[in-house]
Design a protein around this nucleic acid. Structure first.
Length: 691
DNA sequence: GGGTTGACT
């Protein structure tokens, strides 16, 4: 197989002084001769085109190639096509390209299908959860979320049908990307012919190269058949416009206030162009909106022509769509956003960015097993990403609400990988299902803390998913691994089979996997609370969800019904979709679906079987509804959004904790304490806890 | 008395 154009000049190799990492400079590109003329011209104008020969040469000769490229370089759409043109899809093999997000998978796949002049789902296809737009034996370029590829590995651990896997947006260091990278390194040892292309937006490629560098074997690598195991690095320039960065001269204490005055001064002094503002959450965004609106009343000149638009994931769909409507002449859009606009969503027409320097980040404490949301400083990589959003249409400006000294000397280069900030139960079970026994010795791009690993093993052991040797139990462990949900939810589903309430429990599981089924409407919290009362069940939120689901079905899945009842229609559609998938999985696992009708006790027992570790007891004589967890005596309060808020039954089980100034238990169900010793005697008796 | 963001055959 010769993949770089025969007769063309080999690209030049520049050896890096440290460890022989390869850097390449651009070599003259050769035309591919595919597609129709205008599309072909467009493709050739992309920065990545100059590197076509170099990329193909590197991929052929190296097991791993790392492509560093800013947004707009065209790497995501072009590299898979180059690989196909060079023959990597011959013999029925597939070129896979992973993305962290579903939307990106869909849009990149349709773009590539268009460029190649083929129908989406034939030569070019994509797979995301609930949607497989591929044709076996025909699809040769396949885009997929990294989560889907991990699931595929459960059936095909060596990824035999793929010749190349390109992992895109690797710099985001999402949990599934990191798991995938760790597994790919392992697969390469068994399948030296598999090529891995890692695409990343930051120059921190060396960390990745260090990770993929095969351990030096005795003797020369040349003795071994196959590609060079030394990872190659190639850098491709982006195609954004220059963004001029401004820093503060002195640090500020109130970044929301600083944001507002920066917006006003841009409006006064700078020429037309929309403003994108990065804040940390809904609270900040509402506060800033309020301050800007006050300004319109008191100082109309400064704020004239501003259209203030909030943007965060919890915002109803219709309000989010406002962001994309074109700015009227003489007006200026100000989008106040969380970090959803940093990666997940691209806004056109932004010329000015205001960066508060903060975002909300999740941190996991393995000792308490609690995930916290904390406002924390962003990394340099995030700051660059945010600034880049100003340079998409013309040269832009970015106002950083911190000092240059802080940026240079104090800001971390990269964010902390999700792997090190999260609960690892799902991750551990995925690896176990792939037959990786030595979890603690697994080679990660970023090792999680041993405490977090051990805590995950303990939890899985207590659920009966792992045995004394930390192997998956049969059948429960293997069944849990097949269910694409949190292991505690999966355990609840499996237990519901014996208890005869799986019809109801899979509905509950589907609802719990959705962020919220309630419609969030500005300023009508009271009405939502009242609407909730129509469905409220004395047993708690889980049973309330069942009532909503029943109502939704009885209405014929009507969107008007949802509107009347403050239920989020899109969320309910998603519930139906997830529920259908769970039903299919359950049937395949041999779990027949049974309904318990009005017997709510078995239902609550099934919840207990999955979530016994989250049991709490109301503090005796508590006047403010304080609970303590049975396991660790943590102080916990029922979340105000729960139907059991202020009801305060003596014993509860929560689905999740939300940590703000207090620990709030979200999605709560009441239980009988005797069930804990009945259902989880190993957990509650052996620890001699006074119930 | 209250929700950063992604993802799953």
């Amino acid at each position: 197989m010769a993949f770089w154009k025969p007769g063309s000049e080999r690209p030049r190799i520049l050896d890096d002084e440290e460890g022989g990492v390869l850097f390449y400079n651009a070599a003259p590109a050769s035309s591919s001769g595919y597609g129709h003329a205008s599309m072909e011209k467009q493709r050739q104008r992309l920065p990545v085109f100059k590197y076509r020969t170099a990329i193909l040469y590197l991929v052929e000769t190296h097991a791993t190639t790392i492509v560093v490229g800013e947004t707009g370089s065209g790497k995501t759409t072009q590299i898979p096509q180059y690989l196909k043109e060079a023959g990597w899809a011959e013999g029925g093999r597939v070129i896979g390209c992973t993305q962290p997000r579903r939307l990106a998978v869909q849009s990149v796949a349709s773009r590539v299908a268009e460029e190649m002049g083929v129908k989406l789902g034939e030569e070019v296809g994509y797979t995301i959860r609930f949607e497989d737009v591929t044709t076996a034996g025909v699809t040769s370029i396949k885009f997929l979320t990294d989560g889907v590829l991990l699931r595929e590995m459960m059936d095909d651990p060596l990824l035999m049908k793929y010749s190349v896997i390109m992992v895109d947006e690797a710099h985001e260091r999402s949990l599934s990307t990191d798991i995938l990278l760790g597994l790919l390194k392992k697969v390469q040892k068994r399948r030296p012919e598999l090529r891995v292309v890692i695409s990343s937006a930051t120059i921190e490629a060396k960390t990745m190269a260090d990770f993929f560098r095969g351990r030096k074997r005795r003797g020369s690598d040349n003795d071994v058949q196959g590609p060079n195991t030394e990872p190659a690095i190639l850098s491709v320039e982006g195609r954004g416009f220059n963004v001029h960065v401004h820093y503060l001269e002195e640090p500020v204490s109130d970044y929301v206030r600083a944001t507002v005055s920066t917006i006003l001064s841009i409006n006064e002094r700078e020429r037309m162009g929309d403003i994108l503002v990065f804040l940390t959450g809904q609270d900040d965004i509402e506060a800033a909106t309020q301050m800007l609106n006050d300004e319109t009343h008191h100082n109309a000149r400064k704020s004239s022509g501003l259209i203030i638009l909030p943007l965060y994931s919890g915002l109803p769909r219709g309000d989010q769509d406002l962001i994309f409507s074109p700015t009227p002449r003489g007006k200026r859009k100000v989008v106040l956003s969380t970090n959803i606009a940093e990666t997940s969503l691209t806004l056109e027409g932004i010329v000015y960015v205001v960066d508060s320097g903060f975002s909300k980040q999740r941190f996991y404490n393995p000792v308490t097993d609690i995930e916290n949301l904390v406002v924390a400083p962003i990394s340099k990589a995030s700051a660059r990403q945010r600034a880049g959003r100003a340079g998409r249409v013309r040269p832009g400006k970015c106002y950083r609400l911190y000092t240059e000294e802080y940026f240079l000397n104090e800001m971390a280069t990269e964010g902390i990988p999700e792997m090190q900030r999260t609960n690892l139960v799902s991750c551990v079970i995925q690896l176990k299902a792939l037959g990786i026994d030595n979890i603690l010795g697994f080679d990660w791009p970023a090792s999680p803390s041993p405490e977090a690993m051990i805590r995950a093993l303990e939890i899985l052991y207590s659920l009966g998913i792992l045995d004394d040797d930390a192997k998956l139990t049969s059948p429960i462990g293997f069944q849990v691994a097949e269910i694409p949900l949190d292991p505690m939810v999966a355990k609840m589903i499996i237990s519901s089979h014996e208890l005869g309430c799986s019809e109801e429990i899979i509905t509950i599981a589907a609802v719990l996997s959705i962020q919220s089924i309630w419609a969030s409407v500005w300023g009508s919290q009271k009405q939502l609370d009242e609407a909730k009362l129509r469905f409220a069940a004395a047993e708690g939120d889980h049973v309330t969800f069942l009532n909503v689901y029943k109502g939704f079905l009885q209405s014929g899945k009507s969107s008007q019904w949802c509107q009347r009842n403050f239920v989020n229609y899109h969320a309910m559609k998603k519930v139906i979709e997830v529920r259908d998938q769970l039903k299919r999985v359950a049937l395949r696992l041999g779990l027949s679906l049974k309904s318990c009708d009005r017997d709510l006790q078995v239902l609550r027992k099934a919840v207990t079987a999955g979530f016994f570790a989250n049991a709490c007891r109301l503090e005796p004589y508590s006047h403010n509804g304080m609970y303590k967890t049975v396991r660790t005596s943590q102080e916990v309060y029922i979340h105000p959004s729960s139907v059991l808020f202020r009801v305060n039954p003596k014993w509860i089980i929560y689905h999740a904790l939300v940590s703000t100034d207090r620990q709030y238990a979200r999605n709560v169900i009441s239980i009988e304490p005797s069930w804990l010793t009945e259902i989880a005697p190993h957990f509650y008796n052996s620890k001699e806890r006074a119930l």
